Simulated assay, not measured.
Amino acid sequence: MAKLVSKTYGDALFELAVESGQVDEMLEEARSIQQILQKDNELSKLMNHPKIVKEEKIEILEQIFKSRVRDEITGIMRMLVSKGHYGEMESVFTYFIDQVKEYKNIGTAYVTAPMPLTDSQKEQIKHKLQETTRYVEFEMHYDVDESLIGGMVIRIGDRVVDSSVKNKLQSLTRELSKIQLKVGECAP
């Protein structure tokens, strides 16, 4: 159900952004709203409170966002609340942001290495990803996992390239465990 809600409303918002030629502006506003929704526990408590009626919740949202974001975005927010889907609002904006990034050929890469990477190494990785994928730009996220020993793991969407020493050792271990030596054949 949540996936359907985020897709339905996220697609509607994306179509509005493209048709109105306001993709970049609406992307920035959606990111700002998403941050507010993630960080503001008081707003979440208020919007999920069972004794506050939908009309009051809509009024609260309009007071907060009306003069700060486009009418199309407040309209989607109003609609989500009136249909009882406030809990899905963050996922709607996440879906919308992902749609815009795909539209603009912006990839998101998660790189995990066994030690912190230098700025030069980060730039080389980003450049190589741009050469080998259809994306023209990347949002890069870096993490350190010392258990990788060497190499790195790169994830873009549902694709994973694992060139870590840890993965190679695990593969070798699996291959060696498949080998069964027959005692009679090994004797001279």
Rank of each mutant, 00 (worst) to 15 (best):
K3E: 02
L4R: 13
L4S: 06
S6H: 02
S6P: 03
S6G: 00
K7L: 02
T8Q: 01
E15Q: 15
A17S: 12
E19R: 12
G21V: 09
V23R: 00
L27F: 14
E28P: 00
E29L: 14
R31S: 06
R31C: 08
Q34D: 07
L37K: 04
D40E: 08
N41C: 03
N41H: 11
L43S: 10
L43E: 04
K45S: 14
L46Q: 09
L46S: 13
P50A: 10
K51Y: 03
K51H: 08
I52N: 04
K57H: 09
I60N: 04
F65K: 09
F65L: 15
F65H: 11
F65S: 07
K66D: 11
V69H: 13
E72R: 05
I73N: 04
I73D: 03
T74P: 05
G75K: 12
M79T: 07
M79K: 05
M79C: 07
M79R: 05
V81P: 05
V81K: 08
K83Y: 02
H85S: 09
G87V: 05
E90D: 15
E90A: 15
S91M: 06
Y95G: 01
D98P: 04
Q99P: 02
I106W: 00
I106T: 00
T108Q: 05
Y110H: 14
V111S: 07
T112W: 13
A113H: 01
A113W: 00
A113T: 05
P114E: 06
P114W: 03
M115G: 01
L117H: 01
T118K: 15
K122I: 11
Q124D: 11
Q124H: 07
I125V: 11
H127P: 01
K128E: 14
L129W: 08
Q130F: 00
E131P: 05
E131Y: 08
T132Q: 14
T132K: 15
Y135I: 03
Y142W: 10
Y142L: 12
D145C: 11
D145W: 11
S147A: 14
I149V: 07
I149R: 08
I149L: 15
M152F: 06
M152I: 01
V153Q: 03
V153P: 08
G157F: 00
R159T: 11
R159N: 08
V160L: 14
V160M: 14
S163C: 05
S164V: 01
S171M: 07
S171D: 12
T173V: 04
R174M: 10
K178L: 10
K178D: 02
Q180D: 08
Q180W: 06
L181E: 10
K182V: 03
K182P: 03
V183H: 03
C186R: 08
C186M: 13
C186D: 09
P188L: 14
